[in-house]
Design a protein around this nucleic acid. Sequence first.
RNA 1: GUGGGGGUAGCUCAGUCGGUUAGAGCAUCAGAUUGUGGUUCUGAGGGUCGUGGGUUCGAGCCCCAUUCUCCACCCCA
Length: 457
Amino acid sequence: MAVNTTIPKGTRDFSPIEMLRRNYIFDIIRKVFQKYGFMPIETPAMENLTTLLGKYGEEGDRLIFKILNSGDFMSNVNCDDKESVTSTKITNKISEKALRYDLTVPFARYVVQHQNEITFPFKRYQIQPVWRADRPQKGRYREFYQCDVDVIGSNSLLNEIELIQIIDEVFQNLGLAVIIKLNNRKILSGIAEIINESSKIIDITVAIDKFEKIGLEKVNEELLSKGISPEAVKKLQPIILLSGSIEEKISNLKSVLNSSEIGLKGIEEIEKIIDYTKKIELQTCIDFDLTLARGLNYYTGAIFEVKAKDHEIGSICGGGRYDDLTGIFGLKNVSGVGVSFGADRIYDVLLGLNKFNDNIENSTEIMFVNFGDLEIEKLCLSHLVSIRKQGISAELYPESHKMKKQFDYANNKKIPFVAIIGENEKQKGVIMLKNMTTGEQNETSLKELINILTNRK
RNA sequence: GUGGGGGUAGCUCAGUCGGUUAGAGCAUCAGAUUGUGGUUCUGAGGGUCGUGGGUUCGAGCCCCAUUCUCCACCCCA
């Protein structure tokens, strides 16, 4: 019986060309991670629901994919008081597992669970898919890969610097022009503190973030509508309008925040990071962006966001410092910092800017044509062994189809060379080597053939 | 959760004022060509027009509902 061949909203199949391109991205990222001394781990696709809930803010909780309990999942539900059963209440009874929403929280759980095996500071990277029950749109998927690098168990700002170097090197290697935006949650806390609205930091930063998009007036309207007092909004004006060079912004902020200990601490951190970056030959430009907020609740210090310069798609990399994520799982005083590369968005940007090189798209380098002759097939098989021993990918067409069909196959797979051994070649003991780009063909020996293909690399 | 566009062949899309048998390009297969492809030519297969109802002598087209999808907001990689 025929069934609709569709896949769930926001998910995608990846065909060979797409996979080759994706692997190219993953390979670059992985190599850089390893170069800086990070070690790989993986965690399960699903976590206990309680591990994930409450870590990402209210919006985040809503976007977590829950997994229905196995067996008689309704047995815990009391249907008598149906009226009082809300979907959140019922969720806790019928679901105790969920698909991971990001890699950072599962990592924190991993660190606590394996704390006795881990030597701190622990540098790990993790490249795996995550799932969000968001409404899909351009650059937004329900299943996508994150490539996380984190250092946990070290307060040093050298880690922040190292992450900036990694970001710089990854995008350098990908040939992508980006801008790194930097901010610090402590500064945001300081701002909220001096205007006496500490509980509203998130609302304030989200509103300030829209300044460039909607203008000062609308930002103020939004602030008031979120219940922030008119006096506080008034005090915020110089902060919203803050501009100039990084140094100017910092010195202005220093005077605005001079009564806030936490705010000044944040500025000190930013200053130190900026100072360090002058020593690391950075290719990417860095911007101190006070409007950068980041929705995730657990950030406490530096926050990062990376945007592509020539392509509009939202952030392609983001992260920050979290002082107490492991505390929730029972391990206190362990601070971590990390960033996450959004492989799928990076893919979209590279594709949009036409930055994928053709040479990552072919796999087989030479194909032997099949004439259906048993003796020749055996000859081809032994040739293939020799060729593959040299690390050259080669294949024999498995059917004795018409030449046209076999050549079409080679063309579609972008195989650059075809080897032909028919009766004539067999008699003469040669191989007809055809260059599929130029159309030229010459009789060669196996040795010569291997030479040609090896020198081509 | 809020708002807008769309659904016609495997893919991308035309389809006039509501009018006979719903089209094109690409892709696939076959032939021109029994040892030479990608560029040529010829032909073929492929459709419950998202689904359900309504208006009409007649609906791919108009109306209602529903579903899926894309885009924007919110938020985010």
